[in-house]
Design a protein around this nucleic acid. Structure first.
Lengths: 199, 199
DNA sequence: GGGTAACTATACCGGTGGGTATATTCCGTT
DNA sequence: AACGGAATATACCCACCGGTATAGTTACCC
């Protein structure tokens, strides 16, 4: 049902890895259009030639960045939920703690995929596909957790939790309100409580 | 308490108005960094000189775009809620209909302020201020509606509705899930019902 | 050894980025 | 009739954009 399999990672040469690492940080921190390939190559200690040999184009580098970030997020999230939940009933809410932790350890610039979409108006291309994949997977994952917790109508409740997660990410990025993630978690808890659970 | 007064609009010459109108549409549709001043001037049928005489810099043009959009949104929203609500109890939920309407009549690219923030990493400058102003006002406005509807703890519930509105905007922009705005409204309704109301 | 893949160095391409300078025309006000 | 604001036209600045081309340098594998 829900696939926790992350998108396959292409083999990268050492220089390619350095490029991708550097680009990932710059793209998330500064934005897609604000970062040029020259500065990426320079920061990675690599020639532009190497960058283009490895990724072909900036668009493809962006898409690779998003796909890898998605893959890491999925693996990290599933692991986090596994380690920080005692029962299946805890798991849906633990995902909000995961957001808090994730945003704390990277720069608090909100959701990388939402930010990327803001800079990619045309709804075609590999980057756009990667963004939508992330959103769909997240919805399905939350739905599966809610279902495993024994709630009726997991489809609806899972999607509602997804909405709250999106809100938590984006409002944490703006800083308004201050305790956004905690409030989103509380709200999710209220929703789950008001819908009852199967024995 | 809640100010419905929009930020004051500076007087603009006819050419300045054309520039701002053109820039507003391009900025929202294509993104901030993706649109150059040359193309704005060209599309507005105006010289770059005129653009810089009117706005001074691209940053200031961006900030003016955001401030005016915020002002229009506030006025339009308050009017919409007034026209489409029968009782004070209806008003909080009517704001979700407003989002649907607003996103339907402009291009469905999500929240202009969230999108702008994605391209403005440094948390200083007039544009950043405009974004935070919008988010704070929205939170206060929803809180005031909830309070007028007679709910206890309007602070919390108002902020929760704000979270759902942010989610509605951003997920409508991605298209995942499909019925995002309606689901956000339903969720808001569930929250309001579960908290009861004062007689 | 010979070959191949990874990588560096450097230079180049046309186009565009934000921003400025100069000089001129239109037009309503006083 | 003169002034000043608004707008025009044109040309320029330098830096950077994404992307390409050529040539040379490692290092490892058969």
């Amino acid at each position: 049902m829900t696939q926790t399999t992350e998108p396959e990672q292409p083999r990268l040469t050492p220089a390619g890895t350095r490029v991708l690492d550097t680009a990932s940080e710059l793209f998330y921190r500064e934005g897609l259009h604000a970062v040029g390939v020259d500065s990426i190559a320079r920061a990675a200690g690599v020639t532009k030639k190497t960058l283009y040999d490895c990724f072909g184009s900036k668009d493809e580098l962006i898409a690779t960045y998003l796909r890898r970030r998605d893959g890491r997020w999925r693996a990290w999230l599933v692991d986090f939920v596994g380690r920080n939940s005692d029962t299946p009933q805890d798991k849906p809410l633990t995902t909000f703690d995961a957001i808090a932790q994730w945003q704390h350890q990277t720069n608090a610039r909100g959701c990388a995929f939402v930010n990327a979409l803001a800079e990619l108006p045309d709804d075609t291309g590999p980057a756009h596909t990667a963004i939508l994949d992330q959103k769909r997977w997240m919805t399905e994952y939350l739905t599966s957790l809610v279902e495993a917790a024994g709630h009726p109508d997991p489809e609806t409740l899972g999607t509602q939790l997804f909405l709250l997660q999106e809100a938590a990410f984006v409002t944490h990025g703006t800083g308004v309100p201050e305790n956004a993630i905690q409030l989103a978690k509380d709200t999710a808890a209220a929703l789950m409580a008001s819908r009852g659970r199967r024995p």
